[in-house]
Design a protein around this nucleic acid. Structure first.
Lengths: 207, 207
DNA sequence: GTCTATAAATTGATAGAC
DNA sequence: GTCTATCAATTTATAGAC
């Protein structure tokens, strides 16, 4: 039963308008990254983002600095999480093979918990200064992983009939490929993905 | 020694202008795919393509039907090569494990020989009808590979402590990740990539 | 085949009212 | 905070001269 428009009750106690939480930069970043991943960064217009957020383009601009700033924030979030893994004690001390396995596992976990941000990072092409900066940070992380593999191979703990660079790229390429299919339709649990991926890689690279 | 401008020799036998082969649709597709892979499809304008070909945008349009047609042609080239693998005798007869290994190897070879086209295909997002059609063909190929893995697992020839779908995705995700780094700077030979990738995957998935 | 010129639509971003 | 209106630049694509 809806009270007639204009009654006293309707005027003094208007039906509660379905009210969303007020937007902040973090919320809209989440919206933006989702759309970026669906349509690609360059394939997404600010109009697309505003529509996804349910406001106009101008309102959207009230909250964020622009398209490129959104991309930078998303990439930084992914990269900060990856570098935090690199700086954990278990990544820096001990046998190289143990550190390698630890980094594989933790990287996969980050990839799943920060999935949209890592996905976007992995697709960056280098068209702007922002993108080049993200690529450079990413390459730094890649050098860290390549060093791990090289050391573990020198220790005799990884098969050495494959070039270290190729082994590194296959290992982390396998992990990164998870971003290509692990979406909301999650028929596989995160733990199963981590255990499965790390297990297959480790066995595949055993001496 | 350059003859002075205006001499008889210069007028009758003009210095040979560095003449390129006349453009055809295939040549320009090659140019386009290269730029698409560098800057991303949506990040590339027809102006970019024309500049890369050394002609104007209008001249470029004289040879090709448009941006989307270029994408469709590139995806078709990659998909035709993949489906040709699927239809080879060694992919359709024999034990599933042998067919699986054969398809892994052949797919990697296609990936390297048709690298730019496969790279572009793997990045398609589904923004237009053209892209959706390419994605649908790709999914058909994915179903073929998933069936192979499922059968080989049922035969007891692949480890069964991993879901078949996860195993398939890890295996072909590893292969596909090659497109992310195997560019012109080829420090690793194609054969080493094929042997390395297939070898790591097969060992990683052994029972 | 290649060019200049231009059309028609879209894009990232801002101005200013409420 | 949200809106309408608008701008300047870019983008896909075409017309028509040479």
């Amino acid at each position: 039963m809806k009270p007639a428009v204009g009654t006293v009750a309707a005027e003094r106690r208007p039906a509660p308008i379905p009210r969303r939480a007020p937007y902040d930069a973090t919320t809209l970043l989440e919206v933006a990254v989702t759309v970026f991943n669906e349509r690609g960064y360059d394939g997404t217009s600010m109009e697309d983002l505003a529509r996804a957020a349910g406001i106009t383009k101008s309102s959207f601009y009230h909250h964020v600095d622009g398209k490129e700033a959104l991309l930078a924030a998303a990439c930084d979030r992914a990269l900060d999480a990856l570098f935090a893994v690199r700086d954990e004690p278990a990544s820096t001390a001990g046998r190289a093979i143990d550190r390698f396995e630890y980094v594989l596992r933790r990287t996969t976990q980050i990839l799943l918990t920060e999935l949209p941000y890592v996905t976007l990072l992995l697709r960056v092409r280098g068209n702007t200064a922002t993108e080049l900066a993200a690529l450079e940070r990413r390459r730094e992380f890649d050098r860290f992983t390549a060093d791990l593999v090289t050391q573990a191979m020198a220790d005799g703990d990884l098969r050495s009939d494959i070039e270290p660079g190729l082994a590194t790229r296959l290992a982390f390429g396998t992990l990164n490929s998870v971003t290509e299919w692990y979406r909301v339709a999650r028929e596989t649990s995160p733990d199963a993905v981590v255990d499965g991926a790390v297990g297959v890689i480790v066995r595949g690279l055993q001496p």
